[in-house]
Amino acid sequence: MTSDIILQANHIEKYFYDPEEFKVLNDISFSVKKGEFATLVGKSGSGKSTLLYILSTMDTDYKGELIIDGIMVTGKKQNELAALRNEKIGFVFQFHYLLNEFSCLQNIMIPALRLGNYSKKEIEERAYEKLKLLGLQDQALKTASKLSGGQQQRVAIARALINDPLIIMGDEPTGNLDSKNSDIVFDTFQMLAHEQNQTIIAVTHDNDFANKSDRIIEMMDGKIINCLKKK
């Protein structure tokens, strides 16, 4: 495991103004290393999702700075951020957000087709690999809407992996999964972090899931109160 810093947050602050001014994030500074599997925990409403959306570059309305892969992300234009997300960040949500009219395989291929680093045939092969990784190779040609909830969530994870992103972020990615599926996802994340040197940042309410990860970042009232490093 190398010790390069892949993501660095400096003094991040965010306010919501509706219904009244409210400081959601208060002076958040931390960094995540390459190959690290970090979990973000804390009480409901503590600002985990809000922070994660800022880290994912989707939310640009904050103070402070964010550096991803050595690039100052703060202040970049929307289109540049989109390109950066496409190439370097994979995102998984609590809900799967698959495109219902497309097959599982096509859903997984979409970010790679957008990126265009491989030929269509190569992309298809890679998409099959990701499906296999999550135990879904039999479902490849089914329309996304015809799968079970757990299967859909795993397809969404496979989709987040297709471009071999530097960072995979998840907002309660296992929130809707049973313990068996949850374990598959955990093992996959761990394998990606430890064998492929990809970085995982996942929000979770599942204590087992958090305890098994490399590092737990605990939040309370918009602040980081604990930054446990286990190894």
Binding site: S56, M58, A82, L84, R85, N86, F91, I110, R114, L115
Partner: peptide, 16 residues
């Protein structure tokens, strides 16, 4: 709207 949001999250630009 969900499709649009997820496409944008995955790096589709406004133009796309």
């Amino acid at each position: 709207i969900n499709d649009i949001a997820i496409l944008k999250a995955m790096g589709f630009k406004g133009w796309d």
